[in-house]
Computed example of a mutant assay.
Amino acid sequence: MSKFGELIETNVPVLLDFYAERDSACKMMHPVLRDVAAALGDKARVIKIDVEKNTALAEALRVKGLPTLMIYKEGEMKWRQSGEQDATTLIDLVKEYV
């Protein structure tokens, strides 16, 4: 959990994607997140977190549906939603916190 704190305690927005490899909706989000990361460059970070390898963190954050996306800035959750999103929507959301 201390590593998680280090990830989200930044002054740039962090988009977290909680996913599972075997989930088809999560697999469909991979190229979308790649596009988001490319579009935002160093203005934000995109981090993927495998819920099967990070069960304690997923439980602590009450991640139920997959994929679950969250935006953090300076350690504070700014936005959260479960389900697929398109790249344009995610880019616009993250830009609100740049």
Rank of each mutant, 00 (worst) to 15 (best):
M1G: 08
S2N: 02
S2G: 02
S2L: 01
K3P: 08
K3D: 15
K3H: 15
G5C: 03
E6V: 14
E6F: 08
E9D: 08
E9F: 02
E9V: 04
E9N: 14
T10P: 09
N11G: 13
N11R: 11
V12D: 12
V12T: 14
P13A: 13
L16K: 03
L16Y: 08
D17H: 08
D17K: 04
D17N: 15
F18T: 02
Y19C: 00
R22V: 10
R22N: 08
D23R: 05
S24E: 15
S24N: 10
S24H: 07
A25W: 07
A25Y: 09
A25R: 09
C26T: 01
C26E: 05
C26Q: 02
C26G: 04
K27Q: 15
K27T: 15
M28C: 08
M28S: 15
M29F: 04
M29T: 02
M29E: 03
H30S: 03
H30E: 09
P31I: 06
V32D: 00
L33G: 04
L33H: 03
R34Q: 15
R34L: 15
D35C: 07
A39V: 06
A39R: 13
A39H: 09
A39P: 09
L40F: 09
L40Y: 11
L40G: 08
G41H: 11
G41S: 15
G41W: 11
G41I: 13
D42Y: 05
D42W: 09
D42T: 09
K43I: 07
K43D: 13
K43S: 13
A44H: 07
A44E: 10
V46Y: 04
V46F: 14
K48D: 06
K48T: 04
K48G: 06
K48A: 08
I49F: 04
D50P: 08
D50Y: 10
V51H: 00
V51R: 02
E52N: 06
N54A: 05
N54P: 03
A56F: 01
A56S: 05
L57Q: 13
A58R: 01
E59M: 11
E59V: 12
E59F: 11
E59R: 14
A60L: 15
A60E: 05
L61E: 00
V63C: 05
K64P: 02
G65H: 10
G65Q: 12
G65T: 12
P67N: 01
P67I: 01
T68M: 09
L69M: 05
L69E: 01
M70N: 00
I71Y: 03
I71K: 00
Y72F: 10
Y72K: 00
K73Y: 03
K73P: 00
G75T: 00
E76Y: 05
E76G: 01
E76W: 05
M77W: 06
R80S: 14
R80H: 06
R80T: 07
Q81N: 13
S82L: 02
S82W: 00
E84Y: 13
E84C: 12
E84I: 14
D86P: 00
A87S: 12
A87T: 04
A87R: 00
A87F: 02
T88M: 12
T88D: 14
T89W: 04
L90S: 11
I91E: 09
L93P: 03
L93V: 01
L93A: 00
V94L: 15
V94I: 10
K95C: 07
K95W: 10
E96M: 12
E96W: 02
Y97A: 07
V98L: 14
V98K: 11
